[in-house]
Nucleic acid binder design. Structure first.
Length: 462
RNA sequence: UCCUCAGUAGCUCAGUUGGUUAGAGCGGCGGACUGUUAAUCCGUAGGUCGUAGGUUCGACCCCUACCUGGGGAGCCA
């Protein structure tokens, strides 16, 4: 007999048919005559109830069926006599694949704190909450590829190891094969990289954007979707040292096209989750965050506010609020300012545009006013900046002078500059923090709980 | 990195102004129960009180440092 996944079984049950299911025991209840086993194989948040007449099975086998143990069960699918489930399996035979010592297995029937589960990240996917989160995470990853593929975008693989930190986005993880106990130095005291693997300093990427632009200036529309690394000592529920980023880059898009795409994209992902992850979202809505579904539907049903940085500053000043960080034109918005705009003033997602050039990256398209750049940040409730993007500076001279102004390593960026020399084109792009999107869609408050194995300062276990 | 709160049984927590033998619920184990739903009922084992110093006749409790975790902030996605 062929094994059937529990999701499939529950979706189209054939009463009185013989079935074979395999999975892990969530709970066992019962008395000396009958045992009820809740079995879960991860295909869905729902369990199948296995009913076993104790007379039919070896006493020791039944004793070894404990929370966490793994079983193969064959039997007849019948309508349940009890409340709480429609169907159940009347077991004919049970094979115990793996015991789970009840005394030491850390997961119990009762709920656990997220902090405790994080310490047992190797087992937490077996809980309802993490099963739901990781299934949703998968669904959204798939939806990202589907969205872009359907729009004619190409998935471009940008390098994980790079030889420059041109973007200047945060601290780097260095990549080397040098003996750390015996690092060669030049006469001036600096590290001698000549005999290192790449013959020069290398690091894990902080963003695939610059390489993504190279792709867009040949294939028109591309996206990257991969891990990025920041060695910042950030200890917050919104930061990881290793996180996944989605970065589309589009030729012939101006910043308005860019915003249109960003809003449509984010809404597509939310809609995809609502349509394809209903059981998991219902569970999270009841257990983690009672306002989750309402919030997802609200974001879907409303247009994002679009306004310039300059207008936003006016609103913040006119609000008369006392800010911990006083606000004025030219200063970057702090968390309290973003929160005010999104959660109090507009009460919906906000896209801010045209930031002062001095608080944004060198590659952003400069406006004619000489003061601002065509940046756009999408701000979400509870998360802050979920997307950051811009129209890119396509003018060679303007880009080069900005690089010089900021003392960036011009020679490391020769390849980037050449695209502006040979057939340059207006283009735009943005980056979406994948885990932050998952936070929003699942209602899970801590980013460490929306990735299977979080990497944070002082934590690289598993 | 800064501010702040916390660390006591496998888990979640209580523990009086510093005073004999550190408690509960859940989980585990043993038993009862003819269909359970986080089953129920009876019984039972389980502790280097985060680590290292210090104060004291005496420290889970007071002091110092460090470690780990939560919340907030910064950096950012």
């Amino acid at each position: 007999m062929k094994r059937i996944k529990i999701k499939e079984l529950l979706a189209s049950p054939e009463i009185e048919s013989d079935v074979l299911v395999k999975g892990w025991v969530r709970t066992k209840r019962g008395n000396k005559n009958i045992a009820f086993i809740a079995l879960n194989d991860g295909s869905t948040i729902n369990n199948i109830q296995v009913v076993a007449d104790t007379a039919k099975f070896d006493e020791n086998l039944l004793k070894d069926i404990t929370t966490g143990s793994c079983l193969s069960v064959s039997g007849k699918l019948i309508e349940s006599q009890g409340q709480g489930q429609n169907i159940e399996i009347h077991a004919e035979s049970i094979e115990l694949y793996g015991k789970s010592d009840a005394e030491t297995y850390p997961l119990q029937k009762k709920g656990h704190s997220m902090e405790f589960l994080r310490e047992i990240a190797h087992l937490r996917p077996r809980t309802n909450t993490f099963g739901a989160v990781f299934r949703i995470r998968h669904a959204i990853a798939f939806a990202i590829h589907k969205y872009f593929n359907d729009k004619g975008f190409f998935y471009l693989h940008t390098p994980i190891i790079t030889g420059s930190n041109a973007e200047g986005a945060g601290e780097l993880f260095h990549v080397t094969t040098m003996d750390l106990a015996n690092i060669p130095h030049n006469k001036d005291g600096s590290v001698d990289f000549n005999n290192d693997f790449f013959g020069k300093p290398a690091n894990l990427t902080v963003s695939g954007q610059l390489e993504g632009e190279l792709g867009a200036l040949a294939l028109s529309d591309i996206y990257t979707f991969g891990p990025t690394f920041r060695a910042e000592n950030s200890n917050t529920p919104r930061h990881l040292a290793e996180f996944w980023m989605v970065e589309p880059e589009m030729a012939f898009y101006d910043n308005n096209d860019n915003m249109d795409l960003a809003e449509d994209f984010v809404k597509y992902l939310i809609r995809y989750a609502l349509e394809n992850c209903k059981d998991d979202l219902d569970f999270l809505n009841s257990i983690i965050d009672k306002g989750l579904l309402e919030r997802l539907n609200f974001v879907l049903g409303n247009e994002f506010i679009r306004m310039t940085y300059t207008d936003a500053i006016k609103i913040l000043i006119d609000s008369g609020k006392k800010w911990e960080y006083p606000i004025s034109w030219g200063k970057d918005l702090q968390a309290e300012h973003e929160r005010y705009l999104v959660e109090e003033h507009f009460k919906k997602p906000v896209i801010l545009t045209d930031y002062p050039k001095d608080i944004k990256a060198f590659y952003m398209k400069q406006n004619d006013d000489g003061k601002t750049v065509r940046a756009m940040d999408v701000l979400f409730p509870g998360i802050g900046e979920i997307i950051g993007g811009s129209q890119r500076e396509e003018n060679y001279d303007a880009l080069l002078s900005r690089i010089k102004e900021l003392n960036l390593p011009e020679k490391d960026l020769w390849w980037y500059l050449e695209t502006r020399k040979f057939g340059t084109a207006p283009h735009s792009g943005f980056g979406l923090g994948f885990e932050r999107m998952i936070i929003f869609i699942t209602g899970i408050p801590n980013i460490r709980d929306v990735i299977p194995f979080p990497r944070t300062p002082k934590n690289a276990e598993f």
